[in-house]
């Protein structure tokens, strides 16, 4: 059995080494693939706060991923057309600045998570899954019918948005930016899980009645977790849109929600690096198996079956065993 922290370090090392190799070997597409993995990992680190720590099985995280994407799409669309987003009650113009876009993505997806959370946290179990799924579908069909922003066809952004001091058109620079954000988000998730809030949330997942008896409100704890979770997934959505320079309703689809959850299940639910390992493996499989057969999802399905049946802790659980008792 490998110690989990060594596996985590190894994973991070891969995220540095592979693109480094790709530059020297002149394989720019590998860098794009790795960027995809990093962005997926950020989205899944977000979901893992709700799912792994809070026990909230959300099948609606595509809402936040999509909102992040459309925050980028709409702001950049107006910037490239030199039109205002709105002139009333005050003038809001588009922007091509990533930090502003990220902030917008985080704010919008947090607000959506707050509203969805307040409504869906009245339920639990299968009903919670269904309600979050229903919200996802609502946003999906709303995006499809919103003709002003491309409707079903989505929005294309011609030039990637900018970040002060970097040339984001250079794949490796954009990759580095995303990897930096992933590290920040991981740092946040790590601190969160060991914090007073993390302790209370962890207990609220296992024994809500105990949390209540200790004088805390388990539903409010879960709501805050859901909002934080949605905000991070929203940020990932903005990055994903910038990676593809394209936004479409697909980002809101239930398949997207499912994929984000698959990353976590592949890697290990509730493990800090579970979403990261899962996203990396998923992108690798998508690339290699996808090259072998159009029906690569069959193999992915088989792999998921094996992992769920034999390794409850995902790949990290299989390699490192049960989570060590924290000191």
């Amino acid at each position: 059995m490998i110690r989990e922290r060594y596996l985590n370090a190894l994973t991070l090392a891969l995220f540095v080494a592979i693109p480094f190799w790709a530059i020297t070997a002149d394989e720019p597409f590998t860098i794009t693939l790795m960027t995809r993995a990093v962005v997926f990992a950020i989205a899944a680190v977000g979901l893992n706060i709700a799912l792994g720590l809070g026990g909230l099985v959300s099948l609606g995280h595509a809402v936040f991923f999509g909102l992040g994407g459309y925050a980028m799409g709409i702001l950049a669309y107006h910037a490239q057309n030199y039109t205002a987003l709105t002139e009333w009650p005050f003038l809001i113009e588009g922007t091509k600045s990533m930090p502003v876009i990220w902030l917008a993505a985080i704010v919008v997806s947090s607000l959506a998570a707050l509203v969805i959370g307040i409504l869906s946290l009245r339920t639990a179990g299968v009903y919670f899954i269904m309600i979050t799924l229903a919200f996802g579908q609502m946003f999906f069909f709303f995006a499809i019918s919103w003709a002003e922003y491309g409707g079903e066809d989505g929005l294309s952004i011609y030039v990637r948005n900018g970040f002060p001091g970097l040339n984001t058109l250079d794949p490796i620079q954009f990759y580095g930016l995303c990897l930096g954000l992933l590290c920040l988000v991981l740092l946040f998730a790590w601190r969160l899980s060991g914090s007073p809030f993390g302790l209370a949330l962890n207990a609220a997942r296992q024994v809500p009645v105990r949390v209540e008896t200790a004088g805390l409100d388990p539903v409010r704890l879960k709501l805050v977790a859901f909002v934080l979770s949605g905000a991070i997934t929203g940020l990932a959505g903005a990055l994903f849109a910038d990676l593809n320079r394209f936004v479409s309703p697909t980002m809101f689809s239930w398949q997207t929600s499912g994929e984000i959850m698959i990353f976590i299940i592949l890697g290990g639910v509730g493990r800090l690096f579970g979403p990261v390992v899962g996203a990396l493996v998923f992108v690798a499989l998508e690339h290699w198996l996808g090259g072998l057969s159009d029906f690569w999802h069959i193999y992915l399905g088989l792999l998921l079956l094996v992992i769920v049946l034999f390794g409850r802790g995902g790949l990290i659980g299989m390699l490192c065993g049960r989570e060590a008792v924290h000191d």
């Binding site: 969160l192 060991g194 007073p196 809030f197 993390g198 302790l199 805390l216 924290h326």
Partner: peptide
């Protein structure tokens, strides 16, 4: 969770300050 984490939850509830996201509870 550990035995300590369980009693910490009680102490945390009594303190009424669960909204701390970065400090280490231990």
């Amino acid at each position: 969770d550990t035995v300590l984490q369980n009693v910490l939850l009680g102490a945390l509830g009594a303190s009424g300050r669960p909204w701390r996201f970065f400090s280490n509870v231990l």
